[in-house]
Design a protein around this nucleic acid. Structure first.
Lengths: 162, 162
DNA sequence: TTTTTAGTTCGGAATTTTCAGAACTAAAAA
DNA sequence: TTTTTAGTTCTGAAAATTCCGAACTAAAAA
């Protein structure tokens, strides 16, 4: 009794989005589930609906979903008097995850600094380029949250005006 | 006749950076070569120096280097009257690649728009969140290059003052 | 011309990843 | 109590990736 169906167009889009995610380092099944949660008309799907719509095993569904939850790419909620979990793409609350994700990206500077610290002083040009790169990433890590804030402000005032 | 050597500390740093890159979806050997090119005192290394310093085969060196060149993570130059290529980390010219890389990242909006376009109108809240997300990414794709420009300006004037 | 250099390409072994199927579990329902 | 539900865990097969060694190549040097 799934009741949810996918059109051929949706199936194809899911595969294409899946490939896109795969090219960005996400395992195939995780990519397909993420795509399903964005493409499917229903914004929330249960474990079994996902399994049936993609035609995959319970174990594949289980491990992919758990990884998606761990990496914060999917979320779920429960309903009173219902044992099932309702999974959704984290795009619906991307705002929460956003600055956090970028913070993770900026983790590169830590190891870069370490590399720079151990370098010979005999290559000032190379070291200078590295230092500049590190400074730029640090600049971004400050400016980025500010940019996000500005967008939020601009947007809420827009919405209020409508 | 390599003449370049690595300290134990450098070897360990290369492995740690390699793991870091691996966690970000880069194959192990490519990660190690990228790290080597950043950690090693010599900013430029030949094919054979890389092979010897990492103790790997020619085929592994060849395919990893070619992939690094293809993905713009490494560059090389030649010297007159010398058949060898001198490979370096693309960090030394990260500025060129930067906006381009971000442009690639923004590729996500294309497929997201497609997904949004095919969605049912019956889920206005979900669709609204998606639209907002897409708008934000588009906002970034405009603001980002601007941020980069500002940093460049600020930096050149700083350098001139010194 | 022969040899050396600076790699590339091929074949395959070892490792890792991905996923199905079956057995299992813990809580709720009957 | 027994059964059903909503998953989880285990085993292993299939596929993909990674990397080595050996053979090859094309240009330059001897």
């Amino acid at each position: 009794m799934t009741n949810v169906q996918l059109t051929q167009e949706q199936r194809e889009l899911i595969e294409r989005m899946g490939v896109f995610y795969e090219q960005h380092g996400i395992p195939p099944m995780e990519g397909r589930i993420m795509s399903l949660l964005i493409v499917c008309d229903e914004p929330e799907l249960t474990f079994d609906q996902i399994r049936e719509l993609l035609g995959i095993s319970k174990s594949a569904t289980s491990s992919a979903l758990n990884m998606l939850l761990l990496t914060q790419r999917a979320i779920y909620r429960t309903k009173p008097g219902d044992r099932k979990r309702y999974f959704a793409s984290n795009i619906v609350q991307w705002q929460e995850g956003f600055t956090e994700n970028f913070q993770k990206f900026f983790g590169v500077i830590k190891i870069m600094k370490e590399a720079l610290a151990q370098r010979t002083p005999k290559t000032p040009e190379f070291n200078g380029q590295m230092a500049e790169f590190i400074e730029f990433i640090e600049y971004l890590s400050v400016e980025f949250p500010r940019l996000y804030q500005e967008w939020c402000n601009r947007n809420t005032s827009n919405n209020n005006n409508q």
